[in-house]
Amino acid sequence: MKFGVVTFPGSNCDQDMIYVLETIMGQEVVNLWHKDHDLQGADFIVLPGGFSYGDYLRSGAIARFSPIMEEVVNHAKKGGYVLGICNGFQILCEAGLTPGVLLHNNNQQFICENVYLKPETTNSLITRNLDTNKALKIPIAHGEGRYFNTEDAIKELNDNDQVLFRYSTPNAEISEDVNPNGSIENIAGVCNKERNVFGMMPHPERAADEELGNTDGRLLFESILDLVS
C-alpha cells in the first residue's frame, strides 16, 4: 500500500507519521504539499496532527479549503482510505468527511498524556486486528478534542458501529473518570458510514517505536497492513 502524508503549513506531526510508516513499518510514503492538486498515486492518505494554518479561526477550519483537500475529498468519495489524527481529525470533521465536531476540552486546557483506548469495533481497516477487550495505551495531545454530536447522530453512530475508540481504563472499562476532555460517550475516534475515512484524536504514531517504550499504537498500522503481530 502506498501512503500519502499531507503537510499543511503548521502541521507538526507529519514527519513523525512518515518516520513510522516508512522506517518502522517499511512502507512506501509520499509527502503531499497543501498547495498541490496531486495525490501522487497514494492509496491511503494521512492528515497528520499539528496546527494547520495556525488554527486561528477554528481548528481545521482553514485547512479544508486548501487545494490538496479537494483531492482528498474526491479520493474519499471514491472510496479511498483517509486517516486523520488529532488536527487531521478536526480537518476531516470540518470537511464533512467524518461526522461530528471537536470542541475545546472541558477543562479549557491543552492536555498531553498517555490515555487508554478501548477499540469498539473490528469492522474497520484500522481496527480489524485489535482486541475489543484489550485497552491500548496511546497518548493524546490537544486543546480541542472534545467529541460532540447531536443525540440522534450519536445514536446513528452507535447503530452503524461507527465508533472506533472510546477513552477507557487500563482494563478497557468505559467511565467518565477516565474521559480526559469531556467527549460525549468517551468517543475518541470514529469512521464515516462508508467505513473508509477514519478520524481519531489520540496519536498512534507516538506509540509505535520500541525505543520509546510503548508500541500499542503500532497495532493500528499493523491492522491496516493486516500484519499479524
Binding site: 507538526n12 498517555n114 495531545a141 496519536h203 510503548n214
Partner: peptide, 17 residues
C-alpha cells in the same frame, strides 16, 4: 506538564520510563 506537548517529534524516551 500535561499542558505542554512532551511527545511531539517522537523522540522523548522518558515518557514511559
Amino acid at each position: 506538564i500535561r499542558q505542554y506537548d512532551t511527545m511531539v517529534g517522537t523522540v522523548n524516551m522518558s515518557t514511559n520510563n
